[in-house]
């Protein structure tokens, strides 16, 4: 199988490094698993492979975010590594995502924590500059945060793309078929985790009827996602109109309605 060349590794690493910075600032989606994996797929010459890996991993994290500074599994870095190594090894993308992809994503959570922790050092220096009224220094310290952030994504991608190929080849050779089949099935089951996380954030106990509505439209009537989303939009508009028409009632349901 083809080996990654150094230029490819650098390109993918640069995207990983800048992707997290983008998600912290402009937010044009570079750090999304699907787009990052698609880019990786293009670099290694197999865009479809990237799309499948990105899609499979994205489904484990739908609507999940780093709310309040929480760390979540890093499916972006792991997806890029999975795509690059998998496409060159020729492993099945879903099997590979549910095994290596999922494992690496969980492992990389620690690096996110490390980056957020490292930046406290710059905060302390900035505090000194506040005392001195050194505004240039404050701005510099804020920007230095880019380094831990970027490295927390770029470094693991770089290292694993450089040295991971042999490891992956060995793993793929020794793993028994039943285990590989199990991982492939896991790829199909894993989206359930994404939905469960999402339901935890949404007021599902207060408004279960809409989950049922969406389920029935899809399961019984076979409606496509976009169609269901449009029906959901109609329901959302109705709710919005009702709530704004009766502001007194609306203010009663605010706040704690979404905490549970």
């Amino acid at each position: 199988m083809a080996e990654l060349n150094f230029f490819q590794i650098l390109l993918i690493t640069a995207w990983a490094f800048w992707g997290i910075i983008d998600s912290l600032s402009w937010g044009i989606g570079m750090n999304g698993a699907i787009l990052a994996c698609l880019f990786t797929g293009v670099v290694v010459g197999n865009p479809t492979y990237g799309l499948i890996v990105g899609g499979t991993l994205q489904m484990t994290q739908l609507g999940a975010g780093t709310y309040g500074g929480a760390s979540i599994p890093n499916i972006t870095s792991s997806g890029m590594i999975t795509t690059a190594l998998g496409a060159t090894t020729g492993a099945d993308p879903v099997t590979f995502s549910a095994s290596i992809g999922v494992a690496l994503a969980a492992l990389f959570t620690q690096l996110d924590i490390l980056a957020r922790f490292s930046n406290t050092a710059f905060q302390h220096i900035a505090d000194r500059y506040v005392e001195e009224g050194n505004t240039k220094g404050i701005e510099l310290m804020n920007h230095l945060g880019i380094i831990p952030w970027g490295l927390s994504r770029g470094l693991p991608v770089f290292v694993l793309l450089l040295f991971g190929q042999g490891l992956v080849d060995t793993l793929m050779a020794i793993l028994p078929q039943w285990l590989m089949d199990g991982f492939k099935l896991a790829g199909g089951l894993l989206p359930v985790v994404g939905f469960a996380i999402l339901l935890r954030y949404l007021p599902v106990t207060k408004k279960p009827q809409y989950v049922i509505l969406g389920f029935v439209l899809a399961a019984y009537l076979g409606m496509a996602t976009l169609g269901v989303a449009l029906v959901g939009l109609c329901a959302a508009l109705l709710v919005f109109q009702n709530a704004t028409a009766a502001p007194a009632a609306a203010s009663n349901v605010g706040g704690d309605d979404y905490e549970d």
């Binding site: 739908l62 809409y210 389920f215 996602t225 989303a229 329901a235």
Partner: peptide, 11 residues
């Protein structure tokens, strides 16, 4: 949230 719940049900 209503839109989100409907889509999740279908998904």
């Amino acid at each position: 949230s209503v839109l989100g719940l409907t889509v999740v049900g279908a998904m």
